[in-house]
Design a protein around this nucleic acid. Structure first.
Length: 669
RNA sequence: GCCGAAGUGGCGGAAUGGCAGACGCGAAGGUCUCAAAAACCUUUGAGCUUAGCUCGUGUGGGUUCGACUCCCACCUUCGGCACCA
């Protein structure tokens, strides 16, 4: 031993010594190729630098680091990098509340995180570190945006968008949870605004194919549910009686029940609605529409709520049997799904049944239920068709195809696939994000910023006002520019990008950290891609993980990458619980610092690892950590005694061994 | 309502068809000490008529020589989705 100070287990002494040494020697800096070793890319979801690393970060990162070390011991050439997802609202809110510059605030936090990651004892390759708020990084966001724009994968559209009144910005559908903002919990409203979108729905079908990725079934299921594929038929109901040549399109997955349609319901926003309302119903329908607009989304989509509607006075024609069908308006029909119009088949759909009961509409059975079935609810099981013209007698499931064929043949409608997935709304009316590289010119219209003028820099010199409006809209230097096409005065887009854009391709940048002229070099992608093991929380199941898959596929189609899936294998850690409650910064905090001071980070790391299976989470117990500490002390004591034993010389060694062996034997006997 | 995961001592958990409760926490007793802390040793699922025996892995059935483990039904908890036509 160097000195007596190592006689007893002293974590801070050991840990400080080695973390400095690792850093100096760069032993965790991954080389692109090591002879005889297979490359292994182990990636943890990079953090938002929010202030301090709390215990939840430890539970996410320390076991992931242990995994990377394990792979190194197995002989892999491991890359385990770390970076910072440093754009986002907290920095901007800090600026508004405390007058701190967001970039300064962010950099301070990043420094703090770097320091704490080191004291965690992580084996990160810091030579590959990336920071998304760095122009060197976000210029590629802009580069990809332009590529998407040029290839019809990015577009601007006006429409009802999710609006968080607290964060003063629009949100993508995935970022609305139970009608509230996923970040701050404020109830989300609808607001009419022109917004930028990425055409993720073009990839809906491919995103559903998860056969080749080794992910938890749970996450795959959540993505499948989110994409929400429905196969059905869009069918036209004639409106000739009221407007010559017009019709209402409805989407249905139950075309087999087409002969049971006894009413049609339009969503209050349906574009044809206002032109078909009859004089007698004018007042009641208009007041219904106004009312519906006032009710919040959260209320309107609640399943608890009664189904309501009013008659429009108009009728349309069922093309299969030429019956005259009353048209209603009802707010349980969503304008954002399908065609915004539903054919009502009360006998075979529970919602339609309730609606029909309430408004005394005919309930016509067209699929024969079981003998003892009482018609006081919809019959949704299979059966043979009745009252269905030439299709009567067929099994209803088989009839779906027969009827669809008939409809397509007679040009009454078409087979259609509908998805729940919406295009990804990437516009944010915020400052601290990647500026969208678009210029609006009076003559030339929407003009993309030329590639060689990237990056469009986020201005540093900005003022924040308490209204929450983005300072970019008030910054003249940023706002006014010249049109790249005609040279006239023009205005810049002031929206910035959703931060999920940054995290959709960062894994590629880790592979090629120093490339300046291209986002990443193809030989680096071949060396490292796709990620062998990706580790992080399940809360990103339908946001980050879906966007990332979309981005990878889009970049593949634009010839930037040669893979279709970014993450071969995914692991979700569970949740760390304390006193039966989720540990959170606000309500149930647990600061790791005192623990590290008392026991050292190796104890904390080991404790978290031994809590139980990583994917199932675990219960934190203040006393439980003692056991691990005792164990590490014993490991230390044994290693010291071996060291001493080796120092005594061969003859003495033999004697000691014999004595020890006899002692042990006696003990066992 | 739909989809998914999980239910084992006082607690975290182990065992994937073969001695249930590894390992750890906590608790009790002991050693050391003037004393305490630390450390170390022993005990620790429940019950009984206690060298032993019986019961015991959410509940009820089943398969098997043998079930925490496989099958069926149900209950509870957690997570996700939810008027998706």
């Amino acid at each position: 031993m160097e000195s007596d100070k190592f006689e007893k287990y002293n974590p801070s002494l050991i840990e400080n010594k080695w973390t400095v040494k690792w850093e100096e020697d760069g032993i965790y800096n991954a080389k692109n190729n090591v002879k005889g070793k297979e490359n292994y890319f182990a990636l943890s979801m990079f953090p938002y630098p929010s202030g301090n690393l709390h215990i939840g970060h430890w539970y996410a990162f320390a076991p992931a680091d242990a995994h990377a070390r394990f792979r190194r011991m197995q002989g892999y050439n491991v890359m385990h990098p770390q970076g910072f997802d440093s754009f986002g609202l907290p920095a901007e809110n800090a600026a508004i509340e405390n007058g701190i510059n967001p970039s300064k605030w962010t950099l301070e936090n990043i420094n703090n995180f770097r320091k704490e990651f080191r004291s965690m004892g992580t084996s990160y390759d810091w030579s590959r570190e990336l920071v998304t708020s760095d122009p060197e990084y976000y210029k590629w966001n802009q580069h990809f945006f332009l590529e998407f724009y040029n290839n019809n994968l990015a577009y601007r559209a006006s429409g009802l968008a999710n609006w968080c009144p607290k964060d003063q910005t629009t949100l993508a559908n995935e970022q609305v949870k139970d009608g509230s903002c996923e970040r701050c919990g404020t109830e989300v409203l609808k607001k009419e605004l022109p917004q930028w979108f990425f055409r993720i729905t073009d990839y809906a079908e491919e995103l559903l194919d998860m056969g080749k990725i080794n992910w938890p079934e749970k996450i795959k299921m959540m993505q499948r549910n989110w994409i929400g594929k429905s196969i059905g038929v869009t069918i036209k109901f004639d409106l000739d009686e009221f407007i010559e040549g017009e019709f209402i399109e409805t989407f249905t997955t139950r075309i087999d029940t087409i002969f049971g349609v006894t009413f049609i319901v339009l969503s209050p926003e349906h574009k044809i609605l206002k032109s078909i309302i009859q004089d007698e119903q004018r007042d009641s329908v208009y007041s219904y529409i106004e009312n519906a607009a006032r009710i919040s989304e959260i209320e309107r989509t609640s399943t608890e709520r009664d189904k309501t509607g009013v008659f429009t006075g108009a009728y349309c024609i069922n093309p299969l049997n030429n019956e005259r069908i009353p048209i209603y308006v009802g707010d349980y029909v969503l304008s954002s799904y399908g065609t915004g119009a539903v054919m009502g088949v009360p006998a075979h759909d529970q919602r339609d049944y309730i609606f029909a009961e309430k408004y005394n509409l005919e309930i016509r059975v067209v699929v024969k239920p079981e003998e003892n079935f009482n018609i006081n609810e919809a019959w949704v099981e299979e059966g043979n068709l009745i009252n269905s013209g030439e299709f009567s007698g067929l099994n209803n499931n088989l009839a779906k195809d027969t009827i669809a064929d008939f409809i397509e043949e007679k040009k009454l409608g078409t087979r259609t696939i509908t998805y729940h997935l919406r295009d990804w709304l990437i516009s944010r009316q915020r400052y601290w994000g990647t500026p969208i590289p678009i210029i609006y010119c009076e003559q030339c219209g929407t003009v993309p910023v030329p590639f060689d003028q990237l990056p469009v820099l986020l201005p540093d010199n900005v003022e924040f006002n308490p209204t929450g409006k983005s300072p970019l809209t008030l910054n003249k230097e940023f706002l006014y520019t010249t049109c790249p096409k005609c040279g006239d005065e023009a205005k810049r887009e002031t929206d910035t990008m959703d931060t999920f854009v940054d995290s959709s391709w960062y894994h590629f940048k880790f592979m090629s950290p120093d490339s300046k002229d291209v986002p990443f070099r193809s030989e680096d992608l071949i060396n490292w891609g796709p990620i062998h093991q990706y580790m992080g929380g399940a809360e990103h199941a339908v946001m980050h993980l879906l966007y990332s898959r979309f981005f990878t596929k889009a970049l593949r189609d634009l010839n930037y990458v040669n893979i279709s899936e970014p993450y071969t294998k995914l692991f979700n850690q569970g949740m760390l619980i304390k006193d039966h409650k989720k540990i959170s910064k606000r309500s149930n905090p647990l600061n790791p610092d005192p623990v590290i001071q008392k026991y050292g980070s190796d104890t904390l790391r080991s404790y978290l690892m031994f809590l139980g299976p990583w994917d199932q989470g675990g219960d934190w117990s203040d006393s439980g950590i003692n056991g691990i500490y005792r164990w590490l002390n014993r490991v230390w004591a044994i290693s010291i005694s071996i060291k001493k034993f080796n120092d005594v010389g061969d003859q003495k060694k033999d004697e000691t061994l014999i004595v020890f062996s006899h002692k042990t034997t006696k003990k066992i006997l």
